[in-house]
Design a protein around this nucleic acid. Structure first.
Lengths: 155, 155
DNA sequence: TGACATATTCGGCATATCTCGAATATAATG
DNA sequence: CATTATATTCGAGATATGCCGAATATGTCA
């Protein structure tokens, strides 16, 4: 970070622009873009300085990304200092969606009390099957990726 | 709709609960759940009555769902009346995400001006490849589904 | 335990978003 | 062209959300 400021700024804002419509708050979205540019884990103070946001905002944004599995906290040994970096598995955003697909499929399958039969019933069953099929395809693809790239633990 | 009110209500609220965290406004989310239960296209006035919302809210929610490709407007011939029903292709939510994956992959590949080399560069390239792979797997799965279920144009 | 460094929570302000009813626009029909 | 039926837009009030600085909590070291 910080050998070509303008281009980096652009990247950060572009990434944020993509994530924001998906419900990611601006600060968290910008932080994610920023972390993508950082070769090593960075401290909250560094984030605060580079992104020009308050430390409290940096803190909540970082933990939000962590909750979404988009970032990882790297505690420094012998210090309270928290360093953050993008998670090394990029699946976070996708597994979250898989959860939605599962939940939707469940809801539809278990809704015979609301619609027992008829066109709506058929559609619900079909949609449930559809979501499960897609979800399974994604699971498979994720598995294949993990297999192809088994270890990447070298920073 | 409306032969087992309590169960239907529960279904509608449950569906809404799933969609809302994804940024879908409450009214639109409930409307989607409602439409899932309707065997036939319904009018705005019917929606207004059954969902107990204002007509303006019904109108904007319906068109929001339409924009997301989650619902479809069925114009009545010889009338201004608009009838809405859930779209018969359930891919809407997924294609939207595919667009995000594509855009992210693009951004990462075209960001050599921000990071030319090093660990961050490697990661960006890897992520771009990852997103494209997943996106392609989904595309394939969608294609297979369409092939398996070629015609469903009955009611 | 005391002193320090650091992260986290809290209350308030600013801003955005939702929902509504009234006003307006647009299409259909005689 | 007037009337009616319907959808859409508009402005306002209410609600939620994001962001900040100050206050607080928590961990670390001597």
């Amino acid at each position: 970070m910080s050998n070509n400021r303008p281009a980096e700024q652009r990247f950060i804002e572009n990434a944020a622009r993509l994530l924001i419509p998906w419900g990611v708050p601006q600060t968290a979205a910008r932080l994610y873009g920023y972390l993508l540019l950082c070769a090593e884990p960075v401290s909250l103070d560094r984030i605060t300085a580079d992104l020009e946001i308050s430390k409290s905002s940096a803190s909540v944004a970082a933990r939000l990304l962590e909750a979404y599995r988009l970032a990882q906290r790297h505690g420094e040994r012998g210090s309270k200092r928290a360093l953050y970096a993008v998670s090394d598995n990029y699946e976070g955003m996708l597994t979250e969606q898989n959860r939605l697909l599962d939940a939707l499929a469940d809801l539809m399958r278990n809704s015979t009390d609301a619609v027992a039969s008829g066109a709506a019933r058929d559609r619900l069953d079909e949609m449930a099957a559809f979501y499960l099929a897609i979800r399974q395809a994604m699971e498979t693809a994720l598995g294949q990726w993990r297999a192809k790239k088994p270890r990447s633990r070298s920073t």
